[in-house]
Amino acid sequence: MGSAASEPRTAQHLAPTVDRSVKVLVVGAFGVGKTTLIRAVSEIPMLSTEESITTASVGVDPRRDEKRTTTVAMDFGRVTVGSDTALYLFGTPGQRRFWDLWSGLADGAVGALVMVDTRDLAQSFEVLDQLEEHTRLPVAVVVNEFPDSPRHALDEVRAALDLPKGTPVVSGDVRGRPRAVEALTTLVAHALELRRAEGVAA
């Protein structure tokens, strides 16, 4: 995905009003836009472990004609929401051969934002299974609206993915900061609500 127009960024240092830090996992299949989302919202220079896609990946990774690089370890960024909460974003690699890294990256996370591409929805089944097997984190889903993506009602996406009742599903072009922040805050609100319901301190 190409970069959207730059949005204003806040200062790189945390505001003195920030009194809560929250770790968030950003996951999804290969090429769904995880790096793009983190880059769109991060108010600090994003740490990225992208490498060029080479012919060695032919027959191993899915192909995206427009995709030239891929994350091989993780992406990292930070965004402040409201005046008091900093979200630390950890983006996972999309290729299956790197999925063993997920459980380590998930340690201490409040939840996982699952990115979905309706051009290849089947890839998301394996992502959700991986999360359930290795992390047990609360989940919210964002349907990333690529220009050529089929558009479906969110209830249809929820049914197709067989999501548990109450799992939030939102959609939008995450190249834009407002939609990316909306998806992240939806996840955090859902995760904290589940913690309160379970009697766990937020």
Rank of each mutant, 00 (worst) to 15 (best):
S103F: 01
P8I: 04
E132R: 13
T92L: 08
L161Y: 08
R175S: 15
L163H: 05
T54R: 11
V114L: 07
V60F: 06
P8S: 02
P178Y: 06
P16A: 13
S124I: 00
P168F: 07
K67R: 15
T186L: 03
R20N: 09
T17M: 07
R196D: 14
M115L: 15
R20L: 13
P150E: 09
T54L: 10
V114T: 07
P164E: 11
Q130D: 07
G104C: 03
R179L: 14
F125V: 01
E145N: 13
D75S: 10
M74G: 00
P45K: 05
S42K: 07
W102L: 09
P138Q: 05
L105C: 11
T54Y: 08
A112E: 04
P8V: 04
P164I: 03
V200E: 15
T80W: 00
P178D: 10
R96G: 01
T49M: 13
A40C: 09
V22A: 05
G2L: 12
R151H: 14
V174A: 04
A159Q: 14
T70N: 01
L192W: 11
P138Y: 06
P138S: 07
L14C: 09
T55G: 02
P62D: 12
E43V: 01
H152L: 15
R64T: 01
F146D: 07
E66T: 14
S57A: 10
L101A: 11
D120Y: 02
G108L: 13
F98Q: 05
S52C: 00
H134I: 03
R63L: 12
V188L: 08
V143T: 05
R175Q: 12
G108E: 11
Q95A: 15
I53T: 04
R195A: 14
Q130F: 01
L131M: 12
D65K: 10
P168H: 08
L154N: 12
E51H: 04
R39A: 15
E133H: 09
K34W: 11
A15W: 09
